[in-house]
């Protein structure tokens, strides 16, 4: 029926060729991004890369100079704000207002009726064990408590698209876990989540897809498993017993011994397989010269990929 919708397929949100200039400084340079429905999408990048600007454009807080944002294939309109929940990085609450009253106000701004908002708030407040704070003023709350209230007001209207910008900052590990469970549960219920963070461990844990923005441009994009595959370095970690010298001398030239260390009774070796050969060859070679206790490929962490991609991109720009 709608051609644009058909083109975008199952994407809940599509950003195409978004450009945003701020007085001579280009904050976003032809950024495109496709967020599949029902996924958790990581939006990564160093500070000042343009993530927040993109999130603000998706939330229609600022307008793009070029390009467009489609929500389910349709150009996004102010009517869509009730389908989006946004937890910005710079977030706060009215300090002098009471917690319950404030949550109610924010929920009604998202289009919920008073009764419905009340009902849902009661459920959420007891779920996150903050029911007792309903009549407290925000200024009496700790940072973590206020963050819980903000989280609730972001998800209360059960939006199709949830946007979290550094959602876990200010939380203790127990509450981080609690929130992760809630986020995963919302995904199961069909919500799509855009997740912006510097915490790469949680990206690996939660995200299905990522976009990495550096200096206003997309430098890496795709499914997280594919990316990790792409950045594998053919490096293996071997736990072995036997003579270290023998391992060093017996290794064929197709393999490069990067590192050997001894930790208590165990010995570890890190070995890179050069191009044109495989892990099977390495195992065969190792079996001849030592006793293999365990053998494992070292997959790059998102943290390493992040640093590598950003450094490469910066160098390319610099040269």
């Amino acid at each position: 029926m709608n051609r644009a919708y058909e083109l975008s397929g199952a994407n809940l949100l599509t950003a195409s060729n978004v450009v945003k200039d701020f007085n001579g400084h280009r904050a976003l340079n032809h950024v495109s991004m496709e967020v599949p429905g029902g996924s958790i999408y990581g939006l990564l990048g160093p500070n000042g890369a343009g993530k927040t600007t993109l999130l603000r454009i998706i939330n229609q807080i600022t307008a793009p100079d070029e390009g467009s944002i489609l929500f389910e294939g349709i150009p996004i309109t102010p009517e869509h704000v009730s389908m989006i929940g946004y937890l910005p990085e710079e977030r706060g609450l009215y300090r002098k207002m009471k917690v319950g009253e404030q949550a109610l106000y924010l929920a009604r701004l998202k289009g919920l009726s008073r009764q419905e908002a009340m009902k849902r708030l009661k459920t959420w407040f007891s779920k996150l064990e903050i029911g007792a704070w309903w009549d407290k003023k925000v200024e009496e709350l700790s940072k973590g408590m206020a963050q819980k209230v903000q989280f609730i007001t972001t998800v209360l209207h059960e939006p199709r698209l949830l946007i979290f910008d550094e959602p876990f900052s200010g939380f203790d590990p127990i509450n981080v876990n609690l929130l992760k469970q809630e986020i995963l549960q919302m995904k199961e219920q069909g919500a799509t989540i855009i997740f912006s963070t510097h915490n790469m461990a949680s990206v690996e844990e939660l995200c299905d897809h990522i976009t990495l923005i550096n200096e206003s441009e997309v430098v890496l994009q795709g499914e997280i498993s594919e990316i990790r595959e792409k950045y594998r370095k053919n490096t293996y970690r071997v736990v072995f017993s036997g003579d270290r010298e023998k391992l060093g001398n017996g290794l064929e030239s197709r393999f490069e011994l990067l590192h050997v260390e001894k930790d208590g009774r165990e010995q570890y070796a890190t070995i890179r397989v050069k191009a044109g050969t495989g892990s099977g060859e390495l195992i065969r070679n190792l079996a001849e010269i030592t006793e293999i206790r365990s053998f494992q490929e070292i997959l790059p962490g998102m943290n390493d990929i992040f640093i590598q991609v950003v450094n490469d991109a910066s160098q390319k720009k610099g040269s």
Binding site: R56, N59, Q60, I61, P78, V81, I84, Y86, L87, P88, E90, R91, G92, L93, Y94, R95, L106, L109, K110, Q150, T153
Partner: peptide
């Protein structure tokens, strides 16, 4: 200023137009 200082402004303008 209160809305700016308390950082609630971005939450609000994601629901209503500035």
């Amino acid at each position: 200023i209160e809305e700016k200082v308390s950082r609630i402004i971005e939450v609000i303008v994601s629901s209503v137009r500035p």
